[in-house]
Each structure stands twice: as structure tokens, then as C-alpha cells.
Write a protein that binds this DNA or RNA. Structure first.
Lengths: 334, 334
DNA sequence: TTACACATGTAAAGCGCTTTCGATTGGAGA
DNA sequence: TCTCCAATCGAAAGCGCTTTACATGTGTAA
């Protein structure tokens, strides 16, 4: 391995000067030139471990995925958010470290990140159990889709999303509107359900108890089960607002299996706008989360934290607007 | 930061002994116990940079995504492969480093990985341009879906996949079979096309020139264009084997837009079995790649390389079987 | 009792880099 | 020519850990 010592010798300067030249500190032009020549010639590559050890800065950001579907990186929502995050932090030369979850222990995960010396952490999770929360972190952290008042969390405007959905149903003449909720220990699940009830009230509609069913952790299996509960009702809803696209897709599928028509008999609106949504039949009308933007905002907040920029300025950054994507799963009642 | 020195002092031993105890080297039981107690008490976490510097082993594996769709981690095929890879290397305590691609320069990417001191590299790419190939790597590397004879590459059995597709068409009475190829600079694209021609020959069918069209880099846009070329033919095929699901989905869509029925007028078989495949209408019959297994095999090979295990034993590991997933996009001709 | 072997622990060097602080140099001004 | 200051460079310490080679202490055999 070629080190700074080799460069120093080859260029005729001390290692201190070489280090300065490499870090754009003040050295004479002549020294800089000679050193750079040596770098080229010897194919020198700095050693990041040594640098990290000396500077206490790793230029790595730890990524923690909290999902219990076992699909990890392949998660349709998370992966897009992280990609948005990555694109932004890359601009500032950070790399992403996906740490392994030793035994799934939350404390362990945090310790591991500490061990790795990451400069920051981004946590994105769908389920409710806290991953790292109770630890008092020394490491700047940003959360996505997670309930916390501290600055440093990013999420979609779930209330607005629910309102968009409800209003769209109402505009199309629906009043018997059900909601398949996300698990009520998850932030997104809670907020979307709250938003739903609020929007219904605003429209002067009552939320019937039996029209509120839990779909679990946003999986197709959960959506299917929840929909079956709805289908089994004597007085079925004509419209179902589903807290996640995967669940919505499964709900539509089982509805068709029961011999009902979608959307003529039952209309659906999902949440997320994952890629599949536009390909199912009928194409799913849904509330789009701007995954790129969520990732990017999280990145901005985290970088600010890392650089100790006053986080109070960030308050307005944390909520990301959603939009209604109209497709073919909502029927207009006569 | 609490260091090994603090532990040494607190436990009444030298740092050398502490280090040994922490690394399961030979020390007395008493010493080990006292040291572990101190570790607990002081909440000691070892510093991985220091350790890496001293041992020249980082316990990190660099991940290089070569895709030109700009979706990175969210790539439907890659993400699943990498997840399979991750699951396996995690068992051996490796973490994954997703490096940023400074300016997209291949040399730079490799240099960056070298800088980071990763213990191994996994490269997965769809496009043809070599990413890191021409460099003589010092770092153990494994490729996925890439043409190379050297041990250290994993890919699906593309020929078998093409044969499965062709035979399935033939069994259903089709003879006018077209192929939408993947870009012919990509390994997968080339192999699937070769396999197609071979399988056609085996069936005694001729491959008509105009039934062979290029769909580019596996995107929906490319599939659409290619399909339009086929639809514009006077004598249209009754069956189309498409080298990728995304392309196949777009091809089906445009076919329907042209007023034809799928699969009654034209049948389709895709390749990959990405998640969307089962949700489109009609559900896409396709050649499934075992993404988990590809990732896992790549991991096994890479770990062997890292541990300098004779790679000649690995030859049989590198090709992963595929399977035909029958759904609804193939019509039986009378 | 003496000699020796083995188990256990430690001092110190080294991994590759940054950074502080003092030494050296050259040039400007008198 | 001499002084002084600014610019430039380098010696050395330190980041936290591993590892080698050696020192110490204990038990065993003669």
C-alpha cells in the first residue's frame, strides 16, 4: 500500500506538508504541484480509516430499515425514499452504510452504528416498535414516518392525504365510506386514520364503527383480511379508503373474487402510489407520497444536524405535501 | 469516547490484555471476567476505524449498482438480489457500503472503494459499459449478470429460460414467435437472444428477422417502442417472448391500446418475475429469476474469495436455475 | 532444592493520517 | 548591511487498536 510517507519521500517534502497539500491547506504552489505529481505517479489513494481515526469524521451515514416484511432493501416505499436520500447526500460526499441488524436488537443496532463511527443516522420504519428511540443518541439522527416532536423527522402530510381521499369520494357521490387502517401503532396508520375521521366530520358524514377495520402492517395479506371483514358486512360501503397501496391492491383483488365489480360496486383509493398501482386492474386511484422529496428533505435535515446548523429553522421542512392521483378505481355514483 | 485504555485502567490490566480479551484470545478467566465487567460498566464500544487501521480488515463490502434508469436502489430486480446478498453476508458480520459514484467515472468508483478499504465488492449492472472491469483489482470482486469467464460471476440460466419460454409457446400451438431482445451489449440480453434462437431451432422453427426487435435497456419505454415495431408488421406474430418483465408489461399495454386482445390475439412471456408481473392484466406468464438465490450465491462466492478459498470449486455455483411461472398471458391456439 | 517448562501478562511498535507549534527561510524596509 | 516579519515547512504527538517479543510467575520433575 502506498502511503503518505511514500509521497513525502518521492516529492521531497515532509508528510505534514503532503497532508496539507492533499487537504487543500496552505502550502506553496510549488510544493502542491510536486506532491500532486507524486500522487499521480504512485497511484496513491488515501486511507479512510486512518483519516477517520485522526479526524473523528467518517463520511458515512448509517441506514436503518425497520420493516417486518423481510424484504428489506426491496421494500417498494422505503427503497425509493432512500434513493432520494442517497442522491442528496452523495452531493456532499457521504456514503451509505447499511448495517446488519445483529439479532434485531435495537440497542445493538445503535451500538453497531456507534462502533462504525457514522456521522449520522437515518431511520425509516413502518412498524411501531421503536428501533433506537430510547437511547440518548450522540449521533445526529433523522426519522422518516415516525412520531416525534423533536426536530429531525420527515413525513407526508397524512391528514391532507386523507382529506383528499374523502373529498374525492364525496365529490363522486359516495357517503358510505370505509377505511382500512394501517396498524395503529404506526405513525402513518394513526395519522391517516385521524385524518380520515376529521375529513369525514368536515363533510358532515358519520364514521360507522364497522367501516373502520385494521389492515395490519401494510401487507397484501393484511389488506385482504380487512377487506373480507368489510365484504362480510350486511350493509357494505361503496367506497374504501385504504391506508396503503399494497393493502388496497389486495382489497380490490378479493373484492373481485367475491364477484363484485371494481369500481362499479366498490370504489377504492390507496395511499403511497407505489409503482404497481398504475398497473393493476383497474388502475388504482391513490394518494401519492413524494418519496424522492421525503428522502431529500431527510437528507437536508440530517446534514444540517451534522453540521450543527440550528434545527429550529427546519420546522417547516419536515412535512411533505401529498397529491391525489386519479386513475380508474373510483366510480361516480349516479 | 471511552477507549481500551479506560477499560484497562478500570479493570487493572494492560491494554494488550484488554484487546486480547475482547478478541477472544487466550487470557485467564479471571482477567476476561473483570474486563468484561468494565466493558459493561463503562459502555465501551470498540472503534472500527482503529481496528481496521490495525488489522487491514474493514468488514465492509462495497456495493456498486450499474443501472442507467436513475432509480438506483429502487430497481425492482437489483434490490431483491442485493437483499438476498445482504441476508447472507450479514451472517458473517459484514456491512454493506453503498458508495457514491463520483461523476460516474468507473476508475473513480473503484478508487473510492479502495479508499474505503472494503474487503470485497459486488457489482451488479444491467448496461453494457464496464464499470470497473479493466482495472486490475486488488479487491475480491463478484459480478452479477455480467459476461466473464473468470470465477466470480453469477447469473441466471438464460438459455434454459429462453427454452422454457419457446417450448411453452410451442406446446400451446404457437409457431409465429417473436422476441423482444434486451440491449445487445448486455450479457442478459445477448444470452436470452441466443437461447431463443437455439430453442427455436430445436423446435424446428425458423426465426424471422422481422420478429427480432431490440427493446433497449429493459425499460417500459423501450418495450413499448419495440412492440410497436412488431404490431406494425403485416404478418404479426401470435406470441412474443420478451427479455424483461418491464418491457413485457409495456408491450402488452400498447398491444391493448392498438385494439388487440391479450392473450387471445397475441400471447406474451416475460423474464424476471418482478413483483408487478402478477398484478398486471392479464397476469404475466414469465421466466422467474431466483433473485434471493442469485444474491446468496454471489455472497458465498465473494466470501470464499475474501477468505482465499480456492475458487475453482465454485464453478458449479455460478449458474442459477430459472423457472416458468404460468399465469394468464399465454393463449392456447385451437 | 534446583532447573525447567508453561501459562499469563505487558511494553512498545506500528497501522496511515491530521494538526499544533515551533523552526527556518526569504524578502522588505531602514 | 542589519532587523524584523511573514510565509512556509517539519517534528512530533496523538487518534484507538492489534500484535510481537519478551518478562514474570507458577507448577512440575529430577
Amino acid at each position: 500500500m502506498v502511503t503518505i510517507y511514500d509521497i513525502a519521500e518521492h516529492a521531497g517534502y515532509s508528510i505534514a506538508t503532503v497532508s496539507k497539500a492533499l487537504n487543500n491547506k496552505k502550502v506553496s504552489e510549488k510544493a502542491r504541484r510536486k506532491i500532486m505529481e507524486a500522487v499521480e505517479e504512485l497511484h496513491y489513494t488515501p486511507n479512510s480509516s486512518a483519516r477517520t481515526l485522526a479526524t473523528n469524521k467518517s463520511w458515512m451515514i448509517g441506514v436503518v430499515f425497520g420493516e417486518n416484511l423481510g424484504i428489506g432493501i426491496a421494500h417498494p416505499f422505503f427503497s425509493q425514499v432512500i434513493e432520494g436520500f442517497k442522491k442528496h447526500v452523495e452531493l456532499y460526499n457521504y456514503d451509505l452504510l447499511f448495517v446488519s441488524r445483529h439479532m434485531g436488537l435495537q440497542q445493538e443496532t445503535y451500538k453497531h452504528l456507534l462502533h462504525r463511527g457514522v456521522d449520522g443516522i437515518v431511520i425509516i420504519q413502518s412498524h411501531g416498535e421503536d428501533e433506537i428511540s430510547q437511547v440518548d443518541h450522540m449521533i445526529p439522527t433523522v426519522y422518516i414516518d415516525r412520531p416525534t416532536d423533536e426536530p429531525g423527522t420527515v413525513y407526508s402530510d397524512n391528514h391532507a392525504g386523507s382529506r383528499l381521499a374523502v373529498n374525492h369520494f364525496v365529490e363522486n357521490g359516495h357517503t358510505k365510506i370505509a377505511h382500512i387502517r394501517g396498524n395503529q401503532t404506526t405513525f402513518a396508520g394513526i395519522e391517516r386514520a385521524k385524518g380520515f375521521e376529521k375529513a369525514m366530520k368536515e363533510q358532515g358524514l358519520t364514521v360507522r364503527d364497522e367501516y373502520l377495520v385494521d389492515g395490519g402492517f401494510y401487507s397484501q395479506a393484511g389488506g385482504r383480511e380487512a377487506m373480507i371483514r368489510l365484504l362480510s358486512l350486511k350493509d357494505r360501503p361503496t367506497a374504501v379508503y385504504v391506508a396503503g397501496d399494497e393493502m388496497a391492491i389486495a382489497a380490490m383483488k378479493v373484492t373481485k373474487e367475491w364477484g363484485l365489480r371494481v369500481p362499479e360496486d366498490i370504489s377504492f383509493i390507496g395511499f403511497d402510489d407505489i409503482k404497481i398501482a398504475q398497473h393493476v386492474d383497474p388502475a388504482l386511484t391513490t394518494i401519492r407520497q413524494d418519496k424522492e422529496l421525503i428522502g431529500q428533505k431527510a437528507a437536508i435535515i440530517l446534514l444540517d444536524k451534522i453540521n450543527s446548523i440550528d434545527p429550529t429553522q427546519e420546522v417547516d421542512k419536515k412535512m411533505v405535501p401529498v397529491s391525489l392521483i386519479k386513475r380508474d378505481s373510483v366510480h361516480r355514483l349516479a
